[in-house]
Amino acid sequence: MIERTSDKKITRDTVRYVADLARISLGEEETDIFREHLEQILKYVEQLEEVDTENVIPTTHVLSSMKNIFREDIPAPSISPEEALSNAPDKADGFFKVPRVIKER
């Protein structure tokens, strides 16, 4: 949970917390720059609060006439395993290869 000391202040810890959620490692200097930018941008977008949105339905689809799209569940050819792996940074035996997930004991 983000600390909420003041709605308009973004702390370095907030940036670190969000970067952690987004799986991006940030250097110290980057953290400072992004903190400043996020604070500036979020302060600006707070003007949205001026708008009366009482009983307004949030946009979920921009053209409200559209309905859910379903199709029949029929198996059809898709891309081959070779194609699926063709852009993999690392692969082995027809699988994507990643660093060890489970720690060695």
Binding site: M1, I2, R4, T14, V15, V18, A19, L21, A22, I24, L26, E30, F34, H37, L38, I41, L42
Partner: peptide, 14 residues
Amino acid sequence: KRRVLLGTYSLSSG
């Protein structure tokens, strides 16, 4: 990075 951070923030709990 800036947009991912901004977007993650605005979607985060609270």
